[in-house]
Design a protein around this nucleic acid. Sequence first.
DNA 1: CTAATAGTGTCTGTAAGACAGTATCCA
DNA 2: TGGATACTGTCTTACAGACACTATTAG
Lengths: 226, 226
Amino acid sequence: MAFAVTVDLVMLTVREDALCALLIRRAIPPFESSWALPGGFVQETEDLPEAAIRELSEETGIHQEAAHLEQLATYGTPSRDPRARVVTVAYLALLPAAPTPRAGTDAAEAKWLPISDLPPLAFDHAKILEDGVERARSKLEYSSLATAFCPPEFTIADLRAVYEAVWSAPLDPRNFHRKATTTPDFVLPTGRSTTGDRGRPAQLYTKGPATVLHPPLLRALPPTPK
Amino acid sequence: MAFAVTVDLVMLTVREDALCALLIRRAIPPFESSWALPGGFVQETEDLPEAAIRELSEETGIHQEAAHLEQLATYGTPSRDPRARVVTVAYLALLPAAPTPRAGTDAAEAKWLPISDLPPLAFDHAKILEDGVERARSKLEYSSLATAFCPPEFTIADLRAVYEAVWSAPLDPRNFHRKATTTPDFVLPTGRSTTGDRGRPAQLYTKGPATVLHPPLLRALPPTPK
DNA sequence: CTAATAGTGTCTGTAAGACAGTATCCA
DNA sequence: TGGATACTGTCTTACAGACACTATTAG
């Protein structure tokens, strides 16, 4: 039995305090002119992560390196593509405040859209995107992944804004500051400060070498049923 | 470009206080007579989880329902199979104390082997198995998955033995008892007790409805560098 | 009785949640 | 000067780690 294999990308960033996904408007059938995740067929000599990296720039015109790229999951329901039996390997990419993308091959348009207000998506892409968002949400708890959403230098308030956007929940600035700065190797001070904003200048930090947060930074339980 | 798609299974259980994986000895080339993960080709009309469930019984003769089955990851390096371009979707299955399996199709032998002492494996199966073990280890921390390794009724000591086997680290019986019984909906008392063992009879419990543990049951840091 | 395992209670340090107060910028 | 934002400190409560003690079985 022969299958076609594609990679699809769930690309996430934080823009104006909102978690956004990069979506393209399809220029070709099926689902022509529908919104969809960027992606495409895996080539003959290509490894899966290679294909994901290639599609990242090809489909969206973003040549910036993704700060984080990991495999998300694979979707292969027989009826998911009307053309043929297509299995897609989805990847999750996290990027810092990103420029407006230009449309690439096979796309009429490419845009960052807030995940709180999404159009209907082609194929099973709504489910894939939902899985990607949930992966990102839970990984912020126990990994230092939030820094992947930040530029090379950032303030603790910037980092907190990432958590608040991804979790869509407010965090106490003072407790967050303590947690972020005392967790070993989460962020490293650069010695520099911001300037030009209103208010006291903030210290600038860089992503530290830690990959897991120990102990984790847990989301509060929804209502804490007692 | 046409691909073949397979599913491979990382089946884990706890036998005699050791974490074990089910491996088969291949009866056909390539890698004939090597040890490998059970698995096989996805059929034309089959969804991926269906294929995983089918292979679970077909390749190993285990007709018992897996207590837990989840997708692990997908592996598609061009050179991973000498015959053709094969992409494999790996699944992780956790089973309670399992019977000795009989070999199925394409397998000369099927056996539970302790993960602490494994033979070389065919293809990239060593990497897949390693990823599966690491997934299981980390999921015990923040989910109630450990109960998937237990029979329908079990004692707190049984559950603790699962943690100790998977993490290969001893846990304090008293603190573990407190944690397991006070985490809401992790385990539910049945009212029955063990009998016939030496020592005081233990209460029997069932898996509770909780899926995530809040707060998590964290492994101690390896050496806690201070 | 002893040995063995199950289960409870207590102390202590760490860290999170809540919130007051101080520091340093811009206009 | 006032407004805004960054940062520090304190109090309280929750919980994990360590460990002593009691309970209930088999032999």
